[in-house]
Amino acid sequence: MPVPHTKRICQIIKLKPSAVDEYKAIHAAVWPGVLVALERAHIVDYSINYYPPLQLLIATMKYTGSDYEADMKKVSEDPETQKWWSMTDGMQESFVEGAEGSGKEIPWWTEVEEVFRFEGTTK
């Protein structure tokens, strides 16, 4: 069975110091509908890490579909995801000038360039 094309994505955003505990708590029990929307959009292997010295959230995910922009538009139109973002966006500070929130025209999270990848084999 062929392996689907995978686009790797890494994004960053700042987490407000006052929101650390709440952000971690809600992500310990992400709403099922939000996860279903991501799955429908061909997002897999999604994780968010936190680096306290810089108050930095680092998200990594893989996209296995064929039309990333269209699939992300579907996620942004999902009502439960919109409610989730209305809660989480207030806990974050975007690095993107003019950004107003998740799912808007200007990206909320900053996409980070990949500069190195090792896939586990030297042969």
Rank of each mutant, 00 (worst) to 15 (best):
M91T: 07
G101Y: 03
E80T: 10
V75T: 03
V96L: 08
T81L: 12
S76T: 02
E77M: 14
Q92D: 00
D71L: 10
M91L: 08
S76W: 02
G98W: 02
K83H: 00
S76C: 02
G101E: 03
S66V: 11
F95N: 08
G90E: 07
Y63E: 04
F95Y: 15
K73V: 14
K74N: 13
W84M: 04
F95C: 08
V75E: 00
Q82A: 07
E100K: 14
D78Q: 12
K74F: 11
T64A: 02
G65Y: 13
K74Y: 10
D67V: 10
D89T: 03
E77S: 13
E100S: 13
P79L: 05
E93Y: 04
G90K: 11
V96T: 12
Y63A: 06
T88Y: 07
M87D: 06
Y68N: 07
P79G: 01
E97P: 08
Q82T: 05
E69H: 14
T81N: 12
M91S: 05
S66Q: 12
P79E: 03
M87G: 03
T81M: 15
M91A: 05
A70S: 14
M72V: 09
S86L: 12
M72G: 02
E77Q: 14
E93N: 00
W85P: 05
K74T: 12
D89W: 03
S86R: 15
K74S: 12
A99L: 04
G90A: 06
P79T: 00
M72A: 11
Y63W: 08
M72C: 12
K83R: 07
Y63N: 07
G90W: 04
M87F: 09
Q92V: 00
D67N: 15
K73L: 15
D71T: 08
E80K: 08
E80D: 09
Q92S: 05
S76R: 01
G90D: 01
Y63I: 07
V96Q: 14
Y63R: 03
M87A: 10
W85A: 02
K83L: 04
V75G: 00
Q92C: 05
T88L: 08
E100C: 13
S66Y: 06
V96F: 10
K83V: 04
E80W: 03
K73G: 10
V96S: 07
E97M: 11
Y63K: 08
K73I: 14
G98L: 01
W85R: 01
S76Q: 00
D78N: 15
W85L: 02
S94D: 09
K83E: 06
V75Y: 00
D89C: 04
E97I: 11
A70I: 10
S76F: 03
D67W: 09
V75K: 05
T88M: 06
T81Y: 14
S66G: 07
Y63Q: 05
S66H: 09
T64V: 12
E97W: 10
A99S: 07
S76Y: 04
E77D: 15
E93S: 00
A99M: 05
M87V: 12
Q82V: 05
K83G: 04
E100D: 13
M87H: 11
E93D: 05
S94T: 15
W85Y: 05
A99R: 00
P79H: 02
E93A: 03
T81E: 11
E77R: 12
G101A: 01
W84A: 02
M72R: 13
M91I: 05
A99E: 03
S76A: 08
D78A: 10
M72F: 13
T64W: 03
E80P: 01
W84F: 08
E69L: 14
Y68H: 12
S86K: 15
D67Q: 11
F95I: 13
